[in-house]
Simulated assay, not measured.
Amino acid sequence: MSGHRNVIKIYHSLLPVAALYGAGVRLRNFFFDKGILREHTFSVPVICIGNLTVGGTGKTPHTEYLIRLLRPEYQVAVLSRGYKRKSKGFVLGNPETPIEEIGDEPYQMLHKFPDIYVAVDEDRCEGIRQLTDGHTAPGTRVILLDDAFQHRYVKPGFSILLTDYNRLITRDKLLPAGRLREPVGGKRRADIILVSKCPSGLTEEEQKAIRKEIAPAPNQSLFYTTLAYGRLQALFDAEPERKLESLQADEHILLLTGIASPAPLIRKLSEYSPHVTPLTFPDHHAFDAEDMRRIRTAFEKLPEGKRLVITTEKDAARLIGHPDIDPGLTPYIYVLPVEVSFLNEEERIMFNQNIIAYVRENTRNSSLSEG
């Protein structure tokens, strides 16, 4: 297929453990399917954005796409678990909420979209109740559940399942042999399946092959998205934005990431400069003073002159208020925003129509119920 695919690493020696894990997950899903474990429904429209794998499919940019689509007409609330936050229970973010209380991705969305509600709660049912109690987040008309596909105590009105083009769910294995959280059959709960991180030149023949492999049900839609990178933005200084095309072949880039899949970003920047030095940390990594020294040391190893640090929006959220960041480094740090783009314009229109139709109908039903 066109584009570059990551090598899918499977730990074959762990397949027996994965079989035991899968048996437990299948039993849990069976209990929910049969009503032994109860799923809760809510009158407000609830859209779940999730995956079957552990991280790296692009949930945050897809959630942000939905925010942009819906916020002109509806008061949107995003509810997340708040991975690696230091707080417990329900927290509704505000401009003064520190990143430690809500986590990096909710913090990013809160500051990127100040006109929406962003909340975290490990108990998604309780989080939805708080957001819809009429006074905690007044006016909420639609809730986006970030990474809640396996949180089956909530039965969303609409579910979007992401699968990475570079690691399709059909080619993966269950934890710990692979990265699947549950068997591939869990895809049947989705209303829409999105193949994310596709190369922009993916042909129709290749799309048909992927569709045949994933085999969506007749009631499911399958679309293809890619990542569209924006302009470089200075994180600390009021410098003008830079187009990626302005990067020159003699510029040396320190690419600082703490995300699940930095490979696509490395490839993208390598299109403009052959001098890309990755400095990678684990996903959601909490930078400490030693990490700040590592970053400074790595930067100083680059030739003086044309050099800069490029990082992601998620990592920028963890850097911008860090007490140990070297002030001498801050003028060189740029953030590269990323958005979702559909490969096919007709599919983009169809996706948007499906989402808006669901929200309109269920917002109307919710208003009638409240009345």
Rank of each mutant, 00 (worst) to 15 (best):
A119P: 06
A119F: 13
D121I: 02
D121G: 13
E122M: 08
D123R: 11
D123A: 06
R124N: 15
R124F: 09
R124D: 10
R124A: 06
C125W: 05
C125F: 06
E126R: 14
G127L: 13
G127K: 09
G127P: 08
I128K: 09
R129S: 09
Q130D: 00
Q130H: 12
L131S: 14
T132C: 12
T132M: 14
T132H: 13
T132Q: 04
T132P: 15
D133C: 05
D133R: 00
D133K: 05
D133M: 00
D133I: 07
G134Q: 07
H135W: 11
H135Y: 12
H135N: 10
H135R: 11
T136Y: 08
A137I: 06
A137T: 03
A137W: 06
A137H: 09
P138F: 02
P138G: 12
G139E: 15
G139R: 08
G139L: 04
T140S: 10
T140W: 05
T140C: 06
T140F: 07
T140K: 05
R141T: 09
V142Y: 04
V142G: 01
I143E: 12
I143W: 02
I143K: 14
I143S: 15
L144A: 12
L144T: 13
L145I: 06
L145R: 15
L145Y: 00
D146Q: 10
D147R: 08
A148F: 02
F149G: 14
F149V: 11
F149L: 06
F149S: 15
H151I: 12
H151D: 12
H151W: 03
H151M: 04
R152W: 05
R152D: 08
Y153L: 14
V154W: 00
K155A: 10
K155Q: 12
K155D: 13
P156V: 01
P156C: 02
P156L: 00
G157F: 01
G157E: 12
F158V: 04
F158D: 01
F158T: 01
F158S: 03
